[in-house]
Nucleic acid binder design. Structure first.
Lengths: 249, 249
DNA sequence: ATAAATTTTGCATTATTTTGCGTTTTTTGA
DNA sequence: TCAAAAAACGCAAAATAATGCAAAATTTAT
């Protein structure tokens, strides 16, 4: 009996019974348990089954839940965004861009806050739909799949008609000379529109974004009202930003 | 019996009865209580259950995670929607309403399907954003939070401008006389617009929705092209629906 | 076709895991 | 507070797995 045949037999048996037992297989195929174990190990390393003590079971298909979004350094980001909670007040009209920092922010928004929030980020909208007192408006359009945000003219058109009190803009990169810059052209346009539509512009990001640059400009430093980072506001790294007149939380 | 099997049995039993009792398990599985306790401890440390004096109970699901959406009778719904997969073709323009049945459908859409899909459901958009070949357009508007869908005039306006090949409409209720009916007025309006915008109208639902009624009418039975249920198309319960001319999958 | 090289297999040995039992400790409910 | 039930602990026996090795089988090269 060929090894390939055995493997096929094992896999068939596994589907039939949801499991296979080493000793049973050795008996049925008239082979030593060692050989069976080697087969099982091989199939296991190919992820075709999961070897367990005494035999093997079916691989539990990782439910690959689309919905649990991994946030890197969530604790770090919590520290950043919690500083910005003081900027929130009842009856504000708020625009939020996408990004994991903003998502963490959305999680921490107190549940008694009464406000109107516009966003074009799917995860943020999901999060905010838990808040009973927030009027949530999702800005529709073509989805950019990896970032889970809508982009394009539809988004711009809606954003440009909003009169918001404050907007929270995630940042890909920021530096003294170019200000905020973005990887994607389309996102940069949307963020420009957000800034136009808002009385106050807040950007939250971790310090490693400082003094970096991306191809597409969003706005000058002077157009930002407030930036929030994990650093102390009086940290030396923020010296030049402070000089530019932007408020640092 | 393999340990993996036992663990599976315990978890199943736990979901069935909301709890498991050590002595009962030892009896049912014909093992010492020590072994059961060890299993329970193991599953507890994996956070799959919570061990208590005398047995174990379900882990108090951290509802903290907004993103895992519970779908009741998911397996049942899979059976329904998989029948409808044959209605999908490349290059179609599709509109999908919300609802858990449609969400299950979205999960099963083959990843090589090239199509344009419009939806106003957050979870469905999240799901479809995993599909590399689908052009996804989210229809924005005010969020109805519990259903995680957008509603209102903004939605209607966008939908009414779509020229779709096919739309998939979840159903709250259906009966011979009134056709499709909905709990919410706003949703009923949106669905009307969907039907107007589509060449072909498909509704998927489980048989317990048959011959029930909600306050707000969506459409007559004759406006539906296809309905998909868990029943056999020639089941007696569907007799009258068949007579009305609607195609039954 | 034959010899060499490689792979596969089974066995002995050693290591690891699992399991049930007796005992002690903790928890529960009266 | 006390007694019964359950859990934890240590331990030893049994089952299973890993490892090294040599024989057998298969493949490859000449």
């Amino acid at each position: 009996m060929l090894k390939a045949e055995r493997h096929k037999y094992i896999m068939t048996k596994l589907i039939e019974d949801q499991k296979v037992v080493t000793t049973d297989l050795a008996l049925a195929l008239d082979l030593s348990e060692d050989t069976i174990r080697r087969d099982l190990n091989e199939l296991d390393s190919k992820k075709l089954l999961e070897k367990v003590y005494g035999g093997a079971v079916q691989v539990k298909e990782k439910s690959a839940n689309v919905f649990d979004i991994a946030i890197s350094e969530e604790e770090e980001k919590k520290k950043i965004v919690s500083k910005a909670l003081s900027l929130l007040h009842d009856d504000q009209v708020i625009i939020m861009s996408g990004g994991s920092t903003n998502l963490v922010f959305a999680k921490l928004i107190p549940s008694d806050l009464k406000a109107t929030i516009y966003t074009y980020s799917l995860p943020i909208a999901m999060q905010l739909s838990q808040h009973p007192n927030i009027d949530l408006i999702f800005i529709g359009g073509k989805m950019q799949k990896n970032a889970m945000v809508t982009i394009g003219m539809d988004v711009i058109q809606v954003v440009s008609k909003i009169k918001a009190d404050i907007c929270f803009i995630g940042a890909s990169s920021i530096n003294i000379k170019q200000g905020l810059t973005e990887v994607g052209y389309e996102i940069s346009i949307v963020k420009k529109a957000m800034i136009e539509a808002s009385d106050r512009v807040v950007s939250m990001f971790s310090a490693d974004k400082l003094n970096t640059k991306m191809p597409h400009g969003v706005c000058e430093l002077t157009q930002l009202d407030t930036i929030v980072t994990d650093l102390d506001p009086y940290d030396a790294k923020l010296e030049e930003y402070r000089k530019s007149g932007v408020f640092i939380l």
